[in-house]
Design a protein around this nucleic acid. Structure first.
Lengths: 293, 293
DNA sequence: ATGTCTTACGGAAGACGTAATAATA
DNA sequence: TATTATTACGTCTTCCGTAAGACAT
């Protein structure tokens, strides 16, 4: 049963009038007549009783209308929903990241995503550790891959996307640079560079204030990651980073030391609790795929 | 969305293989590819992710399949049900009647019915009052219009179709032929002709054995209606008939007297309890229409 | 005479198959 | 190389509108 036959039949079953039916469908009057006749021939019995003055459904016609109408509506809706869902995942989605590996992941997901949603553009934006949630709260990015823990009432944390070994960055002339194994206890003899503006629970998690034995760890704050790098290069202190960041930020004057006795760095995907749009959903779903295999 | 597009999409969603899909649909391989592409252009995003080696549904495609499949199935079923119901109302339907008015009604309904169900043939058969249920029990007729009351465990009585005034048939030379008004009490002075073979409750209802004052009514039995007519014409007794039967059975030697103090004759439509077929249903539904206006 | 449904006919859209092309394992 | 999906092109079905016909009010 062809679409145009269903439409002719259902419209005529509603209008009970060939001319009005043809007008509603944008067809010539004769077309409706012939389409209905063809359908009736296929079914084997008239669906309408008609004189030149009155059109009415037969029992078979009424039954068919009752069965067909919901199916037709659902079909229409399925198509409309599909186009609407595609349209909802169009426009620009800005994704924040605070680590270059996350950026690579995002760009990878963006490729797959724009293949599936041709009208979607994914833009990326670096997020400074000193203000990790400003951009997402200000809608400068709609979704973000960032270091955990994140515990903000207005932000949803989806899950751990990946985790990285933590390394300690020290100046190549620093005594620790030649240690075989560095631990938290050693930090009492350094200045740890952390970031102002981070929530306290995050700062305490990533940049402890005391060593395990209780000695205070001297600290200094930087505003940007690049600034922290420069400070380490200048011998002003040490700081943490995830292992693979070395591929992006290696410097002659800095060595990246394994730091196995401190937890790895987990990265998660977050978005505003009231910003769970189709775009964001699609991105989160799209970034799921590649991670699992 | 065209039928061939739905079929191509749903089949491909099941097979995940263009060649197998084209074979199942009896199409060329390229056709499937182009049909899917067209659908994807209309929706605005790919429904399948394909390489030359693997085909898989995208999220949009999977959603569309979930929404579309039930609608498509229901549509198919609606059409199949319609053709099946037409086919079920085809062949020969034999209808019994015991009164010429009923025959006219049946023929009228049969005309409308064969217009609605071209493959149905309606035949009529006269039923003798002496054996009112033999033919319907022997499947010589499948439905029957007959005098009420009918109270048989294996027969369904639908409803009263119409009712007719009862008249008394007497020979023109009989003294009652000149009465201004005849009552049951007068029958004590006549011989009432009834029919053998009728169930007792029917015979007692139509042919009382006593007058209201308790006098017995002499009686004689006939085997056929025509026989009863002849007997009345020969002055051998009186009998009952419904008023309009006079149009069919008027004779010079018989007068039809009003008999207002005895109930009218009700006619009902009956069929075997285990013979409620689509044909019968269609006939009963078809005979409903003309009666109501 | 008007409004309705049906029938006849010519043109255009598009669904189809064939066959060549591109990509992947 | 074999198997797959895509693209190009010519054919043919059939959907369509126009216009005339048939019928009822």
């Amino acid at each position: 049963m062809e679409r145009h036959e269903m439409e002719a039949f259902l419209t005529l079953a509603e209008e009970l009038h060939f001319r009005r039916t043809s007008e509603r469908l944008g067809l010539a009057q004769g077309r409706v007549s012939q389409t209905i006749q063809k359908l009736e021939r296929r079914i084997g019995a008239p669906l309408f009783e008609r004189t030149s003055r009155r059109v009415s459904l037969t029992a078979v016609g009424a039954q068919l209308r009752d069965d067909l109408l919901p199916a037709y509506r659902q079909m229409q809706r399925a198509l409309a929903d599909a186009t609407a869902s595609v349209k909802a995942v169009s426009g620009v989605l800005r994704v924040g990241y605070s680590s270059p590996m996350a950026a690579a992941l995002i760009l990878d997901a963006a490729d797959r995503l724009t293949a599936r949603y041709p009208d979607l553009e994914v833009q990326i934006q670096e997020i400074q550790l000193a203000d990790p949630f400003g951009p997402i709260r200000g809608d400068q990015v709609q979704v973000q891959i960032t270091e955990l823990p994140v515990d903000e009432p207005d932000l949803v944390v989806d899950r751990i996307l990946f985790s990285e070994e933590r390394k300690l960055l020290v100046n190549r002339d620093h005594p620790l640079a030649r240690s075989s194994e560095v631990t938290l206890e050693d930090l009492a003899d350094t200045t740890l560079i952390s970031f102002a503006g981070m929530p306290l629970y995050m700062e305490d998690y990533h940049y402890p204030r005391l060593t395990p034995s209780g000695r205070p760890i001297p600290r200094k704050e930087a505003a940007f990651w690049q600034e922290a790098l420069v400070m380490v290069g200048a011998g002003k202190g040490v700081t943490f980073a995830c292992a693979r960041a070395e591929e992006y930020y290696a410097r002659q004057d800095t060595v990246w030391l394994p730091f196995p006795h401190f937890p790895r760095i987990d990265y998660g995907i977050i978005w505003p609790r009231n910003g769970n749009t189709a775009r964001v959903q699609a991105f989160v779903g799209g970034i799921t795929g590649p991670r699992t295999p």
